Simulated scan of single mutants.
Amino acid sequence: MPASSLAGGNVADHDLITFGPVHLEVRNVETTARFWESLFGFTRRTFGDSIELGTEKEILIVLHGGATEPVRQGHSGLYHLAIHTPDQRDFARLLKRFSDLRYPCSPTDHTFSKAIYLDDPDGINIEVTLETPERFRTVRPVGNRLAFIGTDGIERPGSYPLDLQEIYQSYKPGSELEAAHPATKVGHIHLYVADLERSRDFYTGLGFELARWWPPMQVADFGAGGAFKHRIAINTWQGIGAPVHPQGMARMRYFELRFETMEGLSAAVNANPSARSLGVAHVLQDPSGIELRLVRA
């Protein structure tokens, strides 16, 4: 693949596909709801037997009971879901909050984004993301890895330690007590899949653009039209042919994709004859058995 296909340039103004709520199946709905409330400042709404969590404007996470065991390795399904913050002030606010609560987390720099990784009570991995595509120029293969090149010309690994001193320069004292910022969103989802090529074809068929394709590492990235080229990511790191998460294990039940245009939604549905209607949504599974629902934004 040419380097220009891997770069962050030549982009549309905004994403044409965005995320609705991510539905999680957990062992204890109340315990996990408190996790999202205390660490992220999310508000909750009870809806039947489930709990909806998010900002004052938007539902981001829906919790369902039914799991009897935590996450186990060896399955296709959710690698992590990513909560995106609107700016570095809010990113610093959350980092301070996690630190004050002494919750284990891993601050990481990816050049095209800054990230904090942590697990929920069932071992479902969550990434807090600050998008920084303005720092990213391109990526190139080096042996069996990818080297990320910033706009400063420096070549870096895909992941390296986050500069905490630089992050905390944006911290506003007391902000860690604030509720979740209204512009907080589910900004990307990273999936373990069973077959890289079939999954690539499926997600490009939905309208995503292939931004990074690297079979030696069994990984691919997809954009949705905007500057940030990491909206869906896939890998086979749980094994080629890995079965989907079994019933009873904490997992993602499904996620929602919102299409800005009816033409985009219609094209995605037409590309998947197995999609079935459920209210305003079109329900389907990707080649690994991961469920998603397509709706008009």
Rank of each mutant, 00 (worst) to 15 (best):
S113V: 03
N144L: 12
D163L: 10
H110T: 08
I116G: 03
R145I: 13
S159I: 07
D100C: 00
V128Q: 06
D100Q: 03
P161F: 04
D100M: 01
H110A: 06
P133Y: 00
P157S: 13
D119R: 15
R135W: 09
Y117Q: 06
E166D: 15
R137Q: 04
A115Q: 09
P104T: 04
T151P: 02
E131F: 05
D122C: 11
I149P: 14
I154H: 01
P121Q: 11
R102V: 00
E134M: 00
T138I: 13
P157V: 08
P107C: 02
L118M: 10
Y103C: 02
A115Y: 09
E134D: 02
I149K: 05
P133Q: 02
I124C: 09
D163R: 00
L164T: 05
G123W: 12
R102N: 11
I167H: 13
Y168D: 02
V142N: 11
T129Q: 01
D122N: 15
S106D: 11
R135K: 03
G153S: 10
L118A: 15
P104R: 02
G123C: 10
T138P: 03
E155H: 01
D109H: 12
Y160F: 15
G150I: 12
F112W: 09
R137P: 01
P157D: 14
Y103M: 04
T108L: 08
A115N: 01
I167A: 09
E134R: 05
E166K: 14
V139G: 13
R135V: 01
R140Q: 12
